[in-house]
């Protein structure tokens, strides 16, 4: 799922790049800048998915990293529930307002209102964060200019951690590449940094989870981080592999600039058709299997360390 999420999140910058369609050269550069991230993530899946299925390196490494934390002090803020103190009065007010409707309908209405509020708040927070963090993001990017790929990766990580969205940061660089001010090779490490930065958000969120499932949250967030860091180390570290996303993105951009239909086929194919086919295929395979073995990962850790289990309760 994490590998799929990495690929899925790159659709935003690909859509942004399609907006440059009016100018042929600009479109070619923007589309290459967007798809370089897609190709990197696709290559990463091609390398790590079979390895994980055969040898479980990510699972083992994340378990090894999370295990020492089991004995540590609590990281969650459960005792200091600031949000509850703020949200309780308006919730009670709405509850009182819906008292005459019966508990079922009042519950349904409150659930719908709650979901709408969550979407609205997420959108507003995203916009606010961007406005608040744009100054800092600028400073980071100014510092990174002319300092090489490692600095590019670091700046991508930091900016993504600040704006809490890898699609926003990678979409931001698409117009920068489209105008030709930044080259594809300069954009590339920044996108890899965005992959890492997005995991830090998840890792922070995981530390806020308490109870039985805290270990699962922390382990899955750690798997995400290890997967993306290893992806950068392996693919960007090996010169031959490093060139593959650049060449693939340039080749596809050349095709798409010549005939727009290739861009459409690519977006529909990579983000909709292939995932649908794979889901259908794996569902069909699952049906054929007599009985699947239960998957135990993080749970084994908490069972092996019963004396520290209370940390997650």
């Amino acid at each position: 799922m994490i590998m799929g999420a990495n690929i899925g999140t790159t659709i935003t910058n690909t859509l942004v790049s399609l907006g440059h369609v009016r100018n042929g050269t600009e479109f070619k550069r923007a589309f290459a800048a967007a798809t370089i991230h897609d190709f990197f993530n696709l290559i990463s899946v091609v390398i790590f998915l079979p390895l994980e299925m055969m040898f479980h390196p990510l699972e083992k490494l994340s378990r090894w990293l999370v295990q020492p934390l089991l004995g540590g002090a609590s990281m969650d803020m459960g005792g200091l529930n600031f949000m509850k103190a703020v949200t309780k009065p308006p919730v009670s007010m709405i509850k009182q307002g819906l008292e005459g409707m019966g508990s079922l309908w009042a519950g349904i209405i409150m659930a719908i209102v709650g979901v709408i509020m969550i979407f609205l708040v997420i959108t507003l927070i995203g916009k606010l964060l961007r406005q608040l963090m744009v100054g800092r993001a600028k400073k980071i990017l100014h510092t990174a200019i002319g300092r090489g790929p490692v600095s590019g990766i670091m700046s991508g990580t930091l900016v993504t951690t600040l704006v809490q969205s890898s699609s926003t940061t990678t979409s931001l660089v698409v117009p920068l590449a489209g105008t030709g001010v930044f080259t594809l090779r300069q954009i590339y490490p920044f996108c890899l940094g965005a992959n890492i930065g997005t995991c830090i958000t998840a890792l922070l969120a995981a530390t806020a989870v308490s109870g039985e499932n805290a270990i699962f949250a922390l382990q899955i967030a750690t798997v995400h981080l290890i997967y993306n860091v290893l992806g950068v180390v392996v693919i960007y570290g090996i010169p031959y592999l490093r060139e593959l996303p650049i060449k693939a993105a340039e080749w596809l951009a050349e095709l798409a600039a010549g005939k727009k239909i290739f861009a459409l086929v690519y977006v529909v194919g990579v983000f909709f058709v292939i995932p649908a086919v794979l889901i259908a295929g794996s569902a069909a395979l699952d049906k054929k299997k007599p009985e699947a073995k239960p998957q135990i990962t993080a749970l084994q850790i908490s069972e092996k360390a019963p004396e520290t289990k209370s940390f997650f309760n």
Binding site: T12, H20, Q131, A137, K138, L141, I145, T168, L176, V181
Partner: peptide, 25 residues
């Protein structure tokens, strides 16, 4: 490059208006 980064906020619109871009495409 520094000058472009100084106008970074202008490019946030590209993210917001990605569906308009899709219409153009």
């Amino acid at each position: 490059q520094h000058e472009t980064i100084d106008h970074l906020e202008d490019h946030f619109d590209a993210v917001e208006n990605r569906f308009k871009g899709l219409r153009d495409f």
